[in-house]
Design a protein around this nucleic acid. Sequence first.
DNA 1: ATAAGTCTGTGACCCAGGTTACAAAGGGGA
DNA 2: TCCCCTTTGTAACCTGGGTCACAGACTTAT
Lengths: 238, 238
Amino acid sequence: MINWKQEFTNSLLPRVIFMISEKQRKNLFQLYPVLPEVDPELLTQALSRAELVKFRAGTPIFEEFQPCNAFPFILSGNIRVYKQSVNGRELSLYNVTPGGTCVVTAGCLLGDEPYNAFGSIEEDSELVMMTSTDFENLLTSRVFREFIFSLFSERILGLMQLVEEVAFEKLDRRLASLLLRKGKHISISHQELADELGTVREMITRLLNSFSGSGIIALSRGQIEILDEDALRSILEN
Amino acid sequence: MINWKQEFTNSLLPRVIFMISEKQRKNLFQLYPVLPEVDPELLTQALSRAELVKFRAGTPIFEEFQPCNAFPFILSGNIRVYKQSVNGRELSLYNVTPGGTCVVTAGCLLGDEPYNAFGSIEEDSELVMMTSTDFENLLTSRVFREFIFSLFSERILGLMQLVEEVAFEKLDRRLASLLLRKGKHISISHQELADELGTVREMITRLLNSFSGSGIIALSRGQIEILDEDALRSILEN
DNA sequence: ATAAGTCTGTGACCCAGGTTACAAAGGGGA
DNA sequence: TCCCCTTTGTAACCTGGGTCACAGACTTAT
């Protein structure tokens, strides 16, 4: 049977498994238009063995060094893939959203290596979990392979960018650019921002207060409101 | 004709173009055993339009933001792919060696995006430069696609590792691990080590001197000799 | 041999950002 | 309302590592 069940045995299991309904199947095909294009035989095989799983926000779904044996498609919600340091700091590598895929998982499956990062559910999510063998079978289909390819190359470019930022950019600029990406009304705690950038809470508090002191943002518990987007952008130019 | 010529017009051009000899063709097939497995028609097409180019060490071969329109196979030598900061610091992302490929190039070709890093020849190199259209044609072949796939996933894992190191590891550990990877007798300048790690020359000099002070390494101009590999390894455990 | 370029050594200094150790809000549940 | 938990504020302090400004030592070309 599906072996990713083992994979989650030590997690707190705030998840429920369902059969894939007709409606969800349609949803899946809308989000992943490649799927209906692959060999129908392969697809029905794969989907018959796949399961719909609902996860609650905060659930860890994989850990570094863990073997990797299922491949997720995201119907709704959001997976955060991140690294952890020995002193407990975290740093986001990327997020997987509906229509996207988790490239670490794909990479690990293809290379038959354990995960080298952590993954956890950021917002309540519905995932279609496919067995690793079915995933590899799908890869024999040309369109599917091309789909995975494009996500891979996108991710490689993104990771290269991230390396550059972490190595060369100061924290205020990185924070400013993160805020800009998140829109004008942001619901997030300082700790979560720190975990995204690989720093500590105090630094974020300090920087946010300095931004707020210059009237660039307004702060309240769990909320950030961007007042002066241009000023924020000008920090990027420095 | 081959449009990568334009690509190099602003470089200093320490390169010479040759036809691909029978011997080099054999060499290429040995290093890239996938090639003889692809559809022979595609292959001969692609190779007939490809050219052998010899580059001298130090030659820049692509730059950030430059469009990307040729795909290299490495017969000998070594390409360094790196990022540059505004203040001139550098940081190596990865090296391409014979049998490997330049994933940025592949990624940029596939995503039709400009380069987001720099590439330069580290040791005198012989490359077989394939046109971008021929490269994309080759990708219609299953074995070739799988080959590129495995290199992609390898590189993704490598980049994730690099992000972690840059974000969380101290410089002495990163330097120690770099030295260990380079073998017991290393010919390199302090500046080159700095460029690999994304730091400055002075830091490397200091750290190397502290290592040498504890008898772990012996230093001379352009040379580092590892005397006590175990001690170096124990720095990694810290 | 001389000059010019490249590499290495070094010390003083500075600063971003991480650490520690609190205090004080704010908010939700009992 | 009270209690507890989460989030935020903040000040003092420390340190890794980048900057500046040199001075020698080695190498190579002329």
